[in-house]
Design a protein around this nucleic acid. Structure first.
Lengths: 194, 194
DNA sequence: TGCCAAACATGATGTAGGTCATAAATGCCT
DNA sequence: AGGCATTTATGACCTACATCATGTTTGGCA
């Protein structure tokens, strides 16, 4: 779905500051959110306060549809990472977008499939593999979006929050992977070598 | 998508015997599978041979679409649990079904959303919670489909394969939950009490 | 009803990763 | 350049769950 098309249809943009919360678990979904600029993260927080990153969404992407589509309260928090401009499309408008905007429903299907793929992969990892293996998997996943030579700009804490590990474990894991030549790092940052 | 409609359109049914493998990781997806009768399980198998159940599909459901839709090799095995009759719909036919069958694309969107929901929930669990908590979560999830008094017909091994735990841990966990009155069990079987 | 396989059960022991504490390196802002 | 917050780092200890080993119970079916 093209943001420009939404603007053309007269949807209003809202500004969100860093760390503001767009929705939280238990809330009844009323809108789907399209990001014009900025970045948000979707996280669940366990009983003992540990964050788990379910996903990160950037400019051009949308989030919050699954809950709207099956009409169930949100499971996660969505929190603004960087100051963002976001278009909230009401449930009704979203459904009519699906009907009226040519190609959108197919695009939505593909987007959902892609996320399902990612989650299946992570589930398998979390369920069965050991720390370094998990790390290797998300690192490769993240590196895939980069050009050779570019560096990953995620903190070890974020890697921990994506893999369900603890920072210390991530730090030690990266050390090991790096020592074994499985990843390259430059001044602590992981880089894509090829 | 109604199976009857597919049959009306002349799609052929294939029979699969228990334990036969419909597809395995790495294979290029060529069809989406609709189950007429029977049951299959989608599992990933880790390096050390541990199965993780990604999902179970029964009569009236379909599987294998995400890989087809985003054109990526399968991540999991799909294995027949009970003798099944299955309609394999080719990629091309599947796409034209989406286009031509009224309501199907919306239904597909909802199905994908529902699965995404389940996986998000499980991810959060696997990432952050302890054994008994995980157990409690899938047990409640599974019990939700049952009537009061009915019993869960899954083995402890299956619970283990869904939660990434080991059988022994599941057995001990169920004992604890049962002792604490958090679940009811009758002759070892978990039952829905209310 | 008797056999065999599958499913439960339970104890003993090991270990990966969590936890806690403390500190060094970075980066960022003025 | 200096100062503060964030991120990375490292060691010592602990604990939940895996692992292994060895039963016992249950259920299907010949």
């Amino acid at each position: 779905m093209d943001i420009l098309k939404l603007l053309a249809r007269g949807f209003a943009t809202k500004s969100f500051s860093k760390n503001s919360i767009i929705y939280e678990p238990g809330m009844q979904p009323r809108s789907v959110y399209f990001i014009k600029t900025g970045e948000v993260r979707m996280v669940t927080i366990s009983d003992d306060g540990k964050e788990f990153i379910q996903g990160v969404f950037k400019a051009g992407q949308y989030f919050g549809e699954p809950a709207v589509l099956i009409n169930r309260p949100y499971l996660a928090f969505t929190i603004v990472n960087k100051p963002s401009q976001i278009i909230a499309v009401s449930k009704e408008d979203f459904f009519s977008l699906i009907e009226s905007e040519p190609g959108f429903s197919m695009e939505l299907i593909k987007t959902l499939s892609k996320r399902l793929f990612y989650k299946s992969m992570m589930l398998e990892e979390l369920a069965s593999e050991k720390a370094t293996h998990r790390l290797m998997t998300i690192i490769n996943y993240l590196l895939a979006d980069l050009k050779v030579g570019e560096q990953l700009k995620v903190t070890r804490q974020e890697l921990a929050d994506m893999t369900g590990l603890r920072v210390e474990t991530v730090i030690r894991g990266i050390k090991m992977l790096s020592a074994d030549g499985l990843i390259s790092t430059v001044k602590g940052k992981i880089v894509r070598s090829r």
